[in-house]
């Protein structure tokens, strides 16, 4: 927007004067901190940054940021952010949402923002529960989940947010978790750099209504064996010694195998830029839930025309072809006739 150097800022500059009111111990705190610490490094201005949210615990996020912000209505943040992003391509527009907000009431807006490739960065705080309404199951809760609204266990098959985003033609899809600030920041940085819609699922602990939902994979002692870091251009291996790898069987199914047994040359090499999302989708299905080894990192990062830019290009082309709009000419464009004044 301007040639002037972006002023140096610190975490404090990005925090608003509002008291943060999430429950003590909520995973949201660490996500907020990760982002407030990252933003000074991104070379962006507060006045050009906007956080848009819907409804839910995560949706309070904009109030805590010393940027422009809109806390809107349930599920609609991607639609509202779309209008802002396409009319103001100079802005950094972030959408903060939760599993209920993005995948239940707002599912439609999410998938359409992704397929249009609007220039927004979507952070989905997935805690597999409804927190603000005090503990009902969510569209990412596991089958059989016992909650206030499912005393006999939930019957619904959950969404896999990564699979959903890939199916919705998303150009950037990543997963991170609230226990690893460095990994979050690296993922957010990559998402922010992406031109177009970036989708980041964050495994986030709700210590009041769904405590420990991701403990089996994100716990400090479990991570090495349960999280599979995706690194572009590198074989997909995990385990303390990198002893496990992801391989494709002759049936086309991805499986986990000891590298020593199958040989490192059979281990899949991760390619974020692969045009076909099929393999990324297969990776997103590797774990049936956060109790099996689960890939984290960037699943997909490909280039496709950004929606707002394409829209602006159409306007410019129309202006080149027809000249700038002339209102008087428009009003007369349907053909006119003259009624002369009275004869003198």
């Amino acid at each position: 927007m301007t040639d002037l150097a972006v002023p140096t800022t610190t975490r404090k500059d990005w925090a608003s004067d509002q008291e943060v009111r999430w429950c003590p111990g909520c995973g949201d705190y660490s996500i907020l901190a990760a982002l407030q610490m990252l933003l000074p490094e991104l070379g962006v201005r507060r006045e050009n940054t906007v956080f848009v949210s819907g409804i839910g615990c995560a949706a309070r996020f904009p109030y805590y940021m010393q940027t422009y912000g809109m806390h809107t209505i349930h599920g609609r943040a991607p639609a509202i952010a779309t209008g802002l992003a396409v009319t103001r391509p100079d802005l950094d527009v972030w959408v903060v949402t939760g599993d209920g907000d993005a995948l239940s009431i707002g599912g439609n807006h999410l998938i359409h923002a992704l397929r249009r490739n609007v220039n927004i960065t979507i952070l989905l705080f997935n805690n597999q529960i409804y927190g603000l309404t005090k503990g009902q199951y969510s569209p990412t809760s596991e089958v059989g989940k016992v909650t206030k609204s499912t005393p006999f266990g939930s019957l619904d098959t959950p969404f896999n947010p990564i699979s959903l985003a890939l199916g919705a033609e998303a150009t950037f899809v990543a997963r991170t978790h609230d226990m690893d600030r460095k990994h979050m920041q690296e993922t957010f940085r990559r998402a922010h750099e992406h031109r177009g819609a970036a989708f980041v699922e964050i495994y986030q602990n709700c210590n009041v209504f769904n405590d420990g939902a991701f403990e089996r994979i994100t716990g400090r002692d479990q991570r090495a064996d349960m999280l599979i870091p995706l690194v572009h251009g590198q074989p997909i291996v995990f385990g303390a010694e990198g002893q496990y790898g992801v391989v494709m069987g002759e049936d086309g199914q991805l499986r986990i195998a000891p590298v020593a047994e199958v040989g490192v040359e059979r281990v899949l090499v991760h390619d974020e830029h692969r045009d076909d999302p099929g393999l990324a989708f297969a990776l997103s299905r590797l774990a049936r839930g956060p109790f099996e080894p689960t890939p984290i990192g960037v699943f997909r990062d490909v280039e496709r025309p950004e929606y707002g830019e394409a829209m602006t290009r159409q306007l410019l082309e129309a202006q080149e072809r027809r000249g700038p709009g002339d209102l008087a000419a428009l009003l007369a464009s349907g053909g006119t006739w003259e009624v002369p004044g009275p004869a003198h």
């Binding site: 639609a79 509202i80 209008g83 396409v86 009319t87 103001r88 802005l91 807006h109 359409h112 072809r321």
Partner: peptide, 28 residues
């Protein structure tokens, strides 16, 4: 009428139509 600088979005539904208009209004 794009040469007037008019941006139109055929939204995914009625709610997104007004939502996007609200977002655009926030942006001026």
């Amino acid at each position: 009428q794009k040469h007037f600088g008019v941006r139109t979005l055929q939204a995914e539904d009625e709610i997104a139509g007004i939502g996007a208009a609200i977002g655009a209004a926030f942006g001026g």
